[in-house]
Design a protein around this nucleic acid. Structure first.
Lengths: 230, 230
DNA sequence: AAAAATGTGATAGTTTTGCTATCGAAAAAA
DNA sequence: TTTTTTCGATAGCAAAACTATCACATTTTT
């Protein structure tokens, strides 16, 4: 199976495939970096156009608006995450090991797999942390969802829930726990950096605290329902 | 102790106290309803001005911008929540009971206390669910935080963490668990309504599923560290 | 090879949003 | 009563969000 094919975003997301032209690739690569730098609210197609020496309207040929552009970037992120999960857990048959590995991946503590995307992975992670909820916390959520554009996030969540179900088949809330872990893997480090009163996971000095918090959370919940006690 | 005094938002949040004039009160009451109806992104002071038959610039006299206005509304929400927690747990001496009551409150399943605020509590809850993360997921988060404007949220989180600590003094992540519960009490019902693949808590038909999920989560985590096993 | 269709980036708009300077009437203070 | 302050209204600007259209190049069709 080919990586590039596997993790390519939904065609409906972009008006034209940005990977098919030099300008399209520049929009995505530089747009990712610019949005990470100035944030979603301050990001505009005009500013991006100025940076890559083109015009606003040219960018509108590729993306309907900046919300779709953010969704395009996050789709990459979610696809890369799920792909990393699949590849990393391929050779593991122990549920506990799989869940532990999974938590490291969603907490961004696993090494990046080689890819040919040429995307700035640090910027992508930063955007996932600070901007991801803005793609679904909108009035248009149902329309966007009808276009299947949240499928990558749902698939990732479903896969994680599946792993939880494998370990503890009778736990009644595997999907809620999966979305909780995904959301908190983003939010707790953000709190640690900006609103430390809301968290116990330290700043960048101890990245393992996030892992410990999530592992403790997941296994505390699941162990009561586990197939066999550890 | 006087309710109105207790839950009054920080003065720095508004340029002028909106409770001090007829127009100010209309801005807050009608603005709350309008934002709930059309969402934060589509909400503008111009549209609100048209609804309450005044001019945009008059609203700018009360609030610097719509972000501050949202923060003002959420401050009410957080203050009301914390006040409800204080009042509801006043006569309870059992940690388990207190945590159970607390979860019902943050899950919006506790009856509203009487207040004289005249705010649409349903709209306020809707805004807390769909818009609350937009107040801190911004580039300016550190500046806003320096102005102490997140204090009500931190206080609420701290109070919940305190209850967790009372029940399980050695649990190392009470604040992270508190913010997790607060965030998920908003997000899981939102998912249930719009992106049901991300959750197991049902739609509006069974509101108790959210409570069950959160109770199971919290007690699973804390019981291992509990002062005395139940 | 000529003509038609298509794709692509640039130009030049419009509308909406976000915000500010200023004015005059009314209320409060002196 | 005069003076000051407050408050809502008017008008307008700059940036952001989005669109219509053009010119040219490439590809496709005949």
């Amino acid at each position: 199976m080919n990586l590039r094919f596997t993790i390519r975003p939904n065609e409906k997301l972009a008006l034209r495939d940005p990977e098919s032209s030099e300008l399209g690739r520049k929009i995505v690569r530089q747009g990712l970096i610019l949005m990470h730098k100035i944030g979603y609210e301050h990001f505009t197609f005009r500013k991006l156009a100025a940076e890559i020496d083109t015009k606003e309207a040219s960018i509108y040929r590729y993306f309907e608006n900046k919300h779709r552009f953010l969704l395009y970037l996050l789709t990459w992120h979610w696809n890369i995450l799920e792909y990393t999960v699949i590849v990393s857990l391929r050779n593991s048959y122990d549920s506990v090991e799989k869940i532990r590995a999974l938590i490291r991946i969603v907490a961004n503590e696993a090494p990046d797999l080689d890819d040919e995307t040429g995307l700035d992975r640090n910027a992508l992670h930063g955007i996932a942390m600070a901007e991801s909820s803005k793609v679904y916390l909108i009035k248009e959520v149902d329309e966007v969802n009808r276009e299947q554009l949240f499928k990558p996030y749902k698939d990732l969540c479903g896969r994680i829930a599946g792993l939880f179900g494998e370990y503890a088949p009778n736990y009644p809330y595997p999907r809620s726990l999966a979305s909780t872990v995904l959301e908190m893997a983003q939010l707790q480090p953000y709190f640690a950096h900006h609103l430390p009163a809301l968290t116990d996971v330290g700043k960048d000095d101890d990245p393992d605290k996030l892992i410990s918090f999530l592992e403790n959370l997941v296994f505390s919940v699941l162990d009561k329902y586990a197939r066999e006690k550890s």
